[in-house]
Design a protein around this nucleic acid. Structure first.
Lengths: 347, 347
DNA sequence: TTGGCAACCTGTAACGTTTCAGTATACTGA
DNA sequence: TCAGTATACTGAAACGTTACAGGTTGCCAA
């Protein structure tokens, strides 16, 4: 018998990684039996099952991902799709950590799929779906009418969005309640006697832009304050732009006496602009800002902040995708995070 | 002939993803020929090669990753190994973006492999190597004698480290020249008449701790300034800790008149501590800090900053790993990033 | 005794790819 | 003419896994 071709027939004690074949040889069972025993199939005898699992644990058997993936199509991969061209998305690492926290004791791996501003945001998603590169996808920068969500819904691939859509379609999401945030910010400023307020909005076109604007507007009319239009600025502009525009605005006679800012980095620029115009934070103007790390109070103690927890967002999103993959009802995998109170000056 | 079992024998016009079989059927060639034609093997006729590649492009053929991986062991995956329990690692997103930039037009995917502080940092690396989950690995928080680097070197798996090691072993790395940074910082402070300097160090144990401390010490004796010991603080402590310790220090008679800080977040805390003690930045004390985004000048215009580009680090690290995978000499894949000048006050 | 059935186990094929060991054809030189 | 050889292609096997379609026992009812 020619033994030249087959590298390892039954010499299971190699330094190689153990496979089902190794286990089969060691237990004296068939490969099929071992496979089923490991996944607790009912038609395998209880003792056999225990025996196989014991041996598997002993020799540190780990299923070969490529084998599983080729055979079943299951990738055990979650993809986080990110825009790489936004300057100050420091919260990205928090989202990633949140996701990894949840998938840590699952067989899932996290892959990061980037796209640049010049690309159609649908491109990376299409790539993932067409190549079957992931069992589930997480997207951010969600729009009210989001082609990516629609696409994945059509293709039946589980996903979760950071931010809601508004298409009458149901899918998992996690969102921060920006309507409430903006409203609370306005009410807080009104409570401090501020009544000419400007809003630094999220990027136009994203769903939470609308939420924020509405929360701001509704609360304005509720408290009887007025809006100082500041539409030339949104948070994904450059620091320099925001700073310059803010300084311009603050030099006008009809300048605002309060700001609501949707992002910490923008807030730094706003404060700089305010001071460029020779005004003083806390005296001439108050600023309420969202932040994702606890740094703004160090920056200027007069800043008023509301915390948004991106690590939580990552966890929730991961839980949602895994839930959907696991067969749960997508409608039950939606969560909304309530803003903290507005936190006042601190020493 | 029973056609029940085989799902698609030659019905290549399905909506399914095209495979080599599909291409073989369409071109009338054998699967082997198609496979070789696609990778420009010389033993395939020039015309056949072009024909196959044309058809492949037309129908959007993409090799099945699981198939390749199972057959060849090549995963086409790079793993970035990250510690998830460090509060303010906002630069992580920059590294990730840098990496994705480089692998964007390669077949590589980026997976993020986390580990928490409670774990042995070797664990995730061992997992990756044992399960063959990646062709290359990037690690950070590198130590002079780094068990992870040693382990991967033994196993022969390509990797790159963010930060150098000091074990007499050669491997790809990218590092920021923290020796020069600390030295320049000291010289700059000395030039401003500061001569009692404190250093806020990187985490003890990491390689660049040593570089920084040495650069600081050497420059101190060069300019004839003295060190105010501040060993109770390093940059991966909490903001509150650093702030409190700084305030304590600044209330002492022998307080420093200059700080060199290895991280932006720590710098915020230091400044807060300075001000807690009733002192004024720029008047009573100067601070030189590294930063990875352009925010510190907004924070206090009196801050002196040196920029460290983490996106570049990510790119360089990715290039290094890919280079090693591609067979390049590891010794040729090392790069050191030179600090920018110390940037002074700005309006 | 026999047929039926449940319990438990197994071999084969297939997922898509690459490698090995060829085969067929045409061309070369003597 | 014929061996030798270069060129261009090909089928089969293998990577590790799971699904399918059985196969063997042993037991029970009739």
């Amino acid at each position: 018998m020619d033994r030249r071709v087959t590298k390892k027939d039954d010499d299971a004690s190699r330094t190689e990684r153990p496979t089902l074949k190794t286990l089969a040889f060691m237990t004296g069972l068939g490969v099929t039996t071992v496979s089923r025993a490991l996944k607790d199939a009912p038609e395998i005898g209880a003792e056999t099952r225990r025996r196989v699992q014991l041996v598997a644990k002993q020799i540190g058997y780990r299923p070969n991902r490529a084998g599983v993936r080729l055979r079943t199509g299951k990738t055990n991969v979650i993809s986080l799709v990110l825009n790489t061209e936004h300057e100050l998305m420091s919260f990205v690492s928090d989202i990633i950590y949140g996701v990894t926290e949840v998938i840590a004791d699952t067989p899932y791996h996290l892959i990061v799929t980037p796209y640049s501003r010049s690309q159609d945001p649908l491109d990376p998603v299409r790539y993932l779906v067409e190549t079957g590169s992931a069992d589930g996808v997480i997207i951010s920068r969600t729009q009210p009418n989001d082609p990516r969500a629609r696409y994945m819904l059509e293709r039946g691939i589980p996903f979760a969005t950071h931010g809601r859509t508004d298409m009458g379609l149901v899918h998992p999401y996690h969102d921060f309640d920006n309507y409430t945030f903006a409203g609370e910010a306005v009410r807080y400023l009104a409570g401090r006697g501020r009544n000419r307020l400007a809003l630094v909005t999220p990027p136009v076109g994203l769903t939470y832009y609308g939420h924020t604007v509405n929360g701001f507007a509704d609360a304005l009319s509720e408290v009887g304050a007025s809006e100082v239009p500041f539409n030339t600025v949104s948070i994904d502009q450059s620091i320099e732009q925001i700073r310059m525009r803010t300084a311009q605005l603050m030099r006008r006679k009809d300048r605002p006496d309060g700001f609501v800012s949707s992002a910490a980095a923008a807030t730094l620029a706003i404060v700089a602009g305010i001071e460029d115009a020779g005004l003083e934070l806390g005296r001439d103007v108050d600023v309420v800002s969202k932040q994702s790390s606890e740094l703004l109070h160090l920056f200027r103690r007069e800043l008023l902040v509301v915390n948004e927890n991106f690590r939580l967002a990552g966890s929730e999103l991961a839980r949602a995708v895994l839930g959907w993959i696991g067969g749960a009802d997508p409608g039950s995998l939606q969560s909304l995070s309530t803003p903290s109170e507005v936190l006042p000056y601190r020493g």
